[in-house]
Amino acid sequence: MKREYVYRAFERFWHWMQAMLILFLGITGFEIHGSIRFFGYDQAVRYHNTAAISFLILIVFAIFWHFTTGEWRQYLPTWKNLRAQAEYYVFGIFRNAPHPTKKTVLSKLNPLQKLVYAGLKALVIPVMVVSGLLYMFYRYPHRYEVLGLNVGGLEVIAVVHTIGAFLLVSFFVAHLYLITTGRTVTSNLKAMITGYEELPEESDEKKSSVEANEPVLTK
């Protein structure tokens, strides 16, 4: 095993900010939606708007970071090992089998993560941002002397935004649990806090696959 610097400072900052903002946007959003009562409607709207703007700023920085560092390639979905990874969560994990995908600094996401995160980044979050912005600037014709967006009605925008919100909140729950499925129960969490993680070395990997006698890994 080798201690490696996996998550850099900005990445960790971005990750935790994003997590907090999505949680907060979820709570305030579903208060606006009428599902829960927490802050009071007026505060929920105010907080949701403020958090949404912060989220947008964060997204701009994150996009910049992803492209300047080339980290965006980490999220390119792949079929390779996808099945194996799924099988791991369904069977392997209960047999204490090793992770089918080796986590390295250059490839820190397993194929399932790649798929889900790519879906979030390329689909759900853009849909939330666009529908959220439409929601925000819908019919503000004279606001700041700028002609706003005169949409016929809010319904479609709101329903799309709500669908995305349900997906994000469900993802959030699953994600919280999946944190515990690292090499040890807390290794993922520690890594995202400190940036460092014990990653298997070439030799470890061989050893473990021999021990576990998992056919998948010999492919």
Binding site: I32, H33, G34, S35, Y41, G153, L154, E155, A158, V159, T162, I163, A165, F166, L167, S170
Partner: peptide, 18 residues
């Protein structure tokens, strides 16, 4: 459509289901 009053029943059922 008024936020907080209106919602799509299908989306809410499915969403809560998921």
């Amino acid at each position: 459509y008024m936020p907080g009053r209106d919602y799509s029943t299908i989306v809410d059922r499915l969403g809560v289901g998921v």
